[in-house]
Design a protein around this nucleic acid. Structure first.
Lengths: 133, 133
DNA sequence: AATAGTGCTTCCCGGTACTGGAAGGTCAAG
DNA sequence: CTTGACCTTCCAGTACCGGGAAGCACTATT
């Protein structure tokens, strides 16, 4: 499968895929006789994972760690486990933050123009609910 | 409140707060006699919102829109509503993606070393579940 | 077989969103 | 009134791409 196809199936632009290869986030893809990069389903799954993780605010460095966590699943299972659990906590924090944002936006969307009493604490809604994160 | 304090309470570094002011994402803060930037609770709430939104993969441009959505809540309510609803959909997609990542990591964490049969499709778990997003 | 079109390659430049460091002013404590 | 921790501006650098040029590869047609 060529890079355009892999891009389409993963949701990452070809440019980004080449960049990830360049910085070693993903291994260098195999090449066809003509010099084209060649991808299989496994590669696409990793790319898909990367698109998701990056879109959710994980840095490339964090993605690197998450990937190695996957690749090393056959050994050093204690370390892998504790790291995975840490990441799960972080993900759950992010879920709570998204739920807070959703709640705030729902208030904004449902509120009829003129409904608001001057003391309506919508601003508090906006940023306080998950302040302790 | 000075910038260090605002940084601490919002979770954004002082550098980033100054940068947001410079690009007009937040209005220029008031100044003390000594020339220090001065913040109040409202400012901190906005900063906290920005930290969360950025950490969840929203671009600065999207944050700008989300903020204006909040600031314009008193007028043009139809537009505000449709924009808010769009954002809610996006947020819900992100939540699903995070839940998928969490599920994958849980598999990794709970799997005992040696438990895996060669055909165990953990890689499929890794990236396929939310492939249609 | 030649050609046209699309997609691939590398390379280099530009852009966004910060981040670190230097040089110097401000403030509260001792 | 000096020390140390904070603040200020400014300039440079870094991370993560995206645009566009120049050229090769593949497919389809003529």
């Amino acid at each position: 499968m060529n890079i355009g196809n892999a891009a389409e199936q993963s949701g990452l632009p070809p440019k980004t895929i080449r960049y990830y290869e360049e910085i070693g986030l993903i291994p260098a893809a195999g090449r066809t006789d003509g010099g084209y990069r060649d991808y299989d389903e496994t590669d696409v799954q990793v790319l898909r994972f990367l698109r998701r993780a990056r879109g959710l605010g994980f840095s490339v460095a964090e993605c690197r760690e998450l990937l190695s966590l996957y690749r090393d699943r056959d050994r050093a299972s204690a370390d892998v486990k504790s790291l995975a659990l840490q990441r799960i906590e972080e993900i759950e924090r992010k879920i709570v933050e998204l739920q807070t944002m959703r709640k705030t936006l729902k208030h904004l969307a449902e509120r009829r123009h003129g409904d608001e009493r001057p003391d309506c604490p919508i601003l508090e809604d906006f940023a306080t609910a998950a302040a302790k994160t």
